[in-house]
Design a protein around this nucleic acid. Structure first.
Lengths: 261, 261
DNA sequence: AAATGTGAAGCTATTCACAGCT
DNA sequence: AGCTGTGAATAGCTTCACATTT
């Protein structure tokens, strides 16, 4: 999750299930840590535990890549690092632009994990002329006017959108027109893109809401921490033209009998 | 997705599938926009399109909540906003702490979408004494020493971790011990938590790697933008004790015959 | 006429459990 | 003896298509 895909249905690309692809980076991170500690081989059990999945899933995942393990022994760490990197396309250099250099954009630009694995921040772009030229994370911010030329000159195919929601679709359109075919969207909007363009979104608010849902369930069972104050924002609106209560099939306490204050 | 769940298998909570829960915030956002434009009712087709899903899925999702629509008409916008908000637990007030006030933590603290929907930033916490007391997003940063008392005094059950990877597990342990049962993790680490604690993670690096995977596929088909330069970081390591090539079952070009420069 | 709600079908993903290799 | 790789079984999710309701 935080994750969620938008375009491109969960279909297999060359036989590797989407769910597996989404876990490969996790395995890669765990393997890289092992590699740094000079661990030569690892079993599916150990690696799975380091990646936070179960070992059957891991073995199944790896089986889509090929038979890269040794029965009775395990997997060669360095070898697997290379195979997964190659499969993910990380042996190539991916120039990336970040559009929208506010708090979040700046945080992303400064994020170290960017540079490490094949990704390179080619440019930071912002619409505010006051930002233009200001250095952020060692790069001068460039104005939106230059967006198209930056994309073309650097052969950028991945764009990161960290603008306010209102600007996101417009920025997206320009990125796509200029040749970007993969977009990572941090703005809380659904982006419309043509076929062949991938969008993934990262949305803080959605993640929190999902946590709140589960948190609410727990509150009923355990006598632990509840929410601090139950200050409902507004009472239930009366749906117009609705017949007598009882026709609604909601699983429990539909509309509170008394509006919360 | 950017998003991924960690603990808690994809099991249903009170009959609502996890996949549906993950989409409710999306519907809610679209509905809120309609509400602000004073649109009274909406069809599954219209709402689905605004939320970026198909209408059959939306109707199925809503069917788990109950029968909240009117055949021949559609859904009452205000009524649905209320029902989904209630289902997600957003009619309650959820105090949240953010731990790790670096670039990202500050960006999160400043993010408006936080306050809007039932979430309230109760405190910003950082381990650096130099940060203590400094105002960020209108709140004074507090020192990690106070973590436990802040959690308890405010009845916080949701924690956001935006620390460096190395500190994340330790912060997580302290949060959980103090009573936090839901964690949103921005650090690139797999967190170990006891049963009953939910973790969701947001990981820029993973999202980019998933995009790179699909991008790599496209490069083969269309003659569009390829990656700028193919500078492989390292050649394929030689797995020790491996027999002659041909035994490996990797689907294609296993190990490059010549190491890339 | 229009649009919901939902069984049934189809598809994807996970888990089991064990044959097969080292 | 140990551990991988994988068919088979199970669970979960999406899509279809249409009866049902307004």
């Amino acid at each position: 999750m935080a994750t969620g895909r938008t375009h491109r249905p969960a279909t297999r690309s060359r036989g590797i299930p989407e769910a597996t692809v989404a876990r490969l980076p996790l395995y890669l991170r765990a393997l890289t840590a092992l590699s740094e500690r000079s661990v030569p081989t690892v079993s599916s059990e150990e690696l799975a535990s380091a990646a936070g999945v179960n070992s059957a899933k891991l073995r199944k995942d790896f089986s889509y890549l090929g038979s890269y393990g040794t029965r009775g022994v395990g997997y060669d760490v360095e070898y697997l690092v290379y195979q997964i990197s190659r499969e993910l396309g990380l042996t190539q250099d991916w120039p990336v632009v970040i559009v929208g250099i506010g708090n979040l954009g700046a945080a992303l630009a400064n994020y170290g994990g960017f540079a490490s694995r094949g990704f390179r921040v080619a440019a930071l772009i912002d619409a505010d002329p006051a930002m233009t030229g200001r250095p952020v994370a060692g790069l001068p911010v460039r104005h939106t006017d230059e967006l198209e030329s930056i994309i073309r000159d650097n052969g950028v195919s991945i764009g990161v959108i960290a603008t306010p929601a209102g600007a996101a679709q417009q920025v997206c359109d320009r990125l796509v027109t200029a040749g970007v075919t993969s977009i990572l969207n941090f703005a809380p909007t659904v982006l419309a893109v043509p076929d062949g363009v991938d969008v993934r979104k990262v949305d803080l608010s959605i993640e929190l809401q999902i946590l709140a849902f589960h948190e609410q369930r727990k509150a009923g069972e355990e006598p632990g921490q509840g929410p601090a104050a139950v200050t409902a924002a507004a009472g239930a609106p009366q749906a117009p033209g609705r017949p007598a209560p009882g026709s609604r099939k909601g699983p429990e306490g539909d509309v509170p009998a008394v509006m919360p204050a």
